[in-house]
Design a protein around this nucleic acid. Structure first.
Length: 227
DNA sequence: TTCCTGTGTA
DNA sequence: TACACCGGAA
């Protein structure tokens, strides 16, 4: 692990976020399978809406692979309606569930038994699971040490000039993973904290006033209300 | 780049 | 009324 200025800044950001927000307790769910359902439902969707959809699935006793595999797509879509993109997401849930049943006999535990990189490739092969969702599944359902990059991560790091706008998902992920210790609990908390600061402060229109990361801004001054 | 879509908030 | 929301496919 290189002892660079980048590393010190990444750790400094983490410390300030944790001091300010405290532990985020991600991922809120009752089972690893429910985590995976959540990762698909929350694609480009506010978590409050996902909670409603998951509650609906629980009430309908659909929070296990066999049930989602069996129920007609249109009915599944109706249950997850509050999460938005419900037709697409019903198909995606069925794609993952079918994969889990045929490849691992419906067992999430068995799915996580193999090598991380091989499972990641398998997940990316499922239509509806991209890099962020695959890594969220590995980290938050499987407790595997892989860093999740999302829109908030990009925005915060870009505004703090730790990454360039054009950097790919993998490049940003490597930035974290080469400079931080390989620790799933750290990766878990760090990503959750980036989401927390992104929601309240590092919004589309920046709200640097009272942001816990103000000290680290380029030129040491708040960003103008224009991104 | 555009489409997919309901919901909460400014 | 507008806008963003713990993205991915084509």
């Amino acid at each position: 692990m290189p002892q660079t200025a980048t590393r010190r800044r990444l750790i400094s950001l983490y410390r300030h976020l944790f001091q300010f927000f405290g532990p985020q307790h991600w991922w809120p769910a009752r089972s690893p399978f429910e985590v995976i359902v959540g990762t698909i439902l929350t694609q480009n969707t506010a978590w409050t809406n996902v909670e409603k959809a998951i509650a609906a699935l629980r009430d309908a006793r659909l929070l296990h692979p066999a049930a989602i595999d069996t129920i007609p797509q249109e009915q599944l879509a109706r249950h997850i309606r509050p999460a938005g993109y419900y037709n697409m997401k019903a198909v995606r849930l069925k794609h993952f569930t079918h994969f889990l049943l045929t490849r691992y006999g419906g067992s999430v535990r068995r799915m996580f038994r193999g090598k991380q990189l091989e499972l990641r490739e398998e997940l990316l092969g499922i239509s509806g699971i991209g890099e962020e969702t695959a890594d969220s599944i590995l980290l938050y359902a499987g407790n595997q040490p892989i860093f999740v990059v999302d829109a908030y991560t990009r925005r915060v790091l870009e505004r703090h000039e730790l990454i360039a706008a054009k950097m790919s998902y993998g490049e940003i992920q490597r930035l974290f993973m080469t400079h931080l210790p390989t620790d799933p609990a750290l990766f878990n908390e760090y990503h959750a904290l980036l989401v927390a600061v992104g929601k309240t402060y590092c919004r589309s229109t920046p709200n640097c006033k009272d942001c816990p990361l103000q000290y680290d801004l380029p030129n040491g001054s708040p960003l103008l209300p224009r991104p």
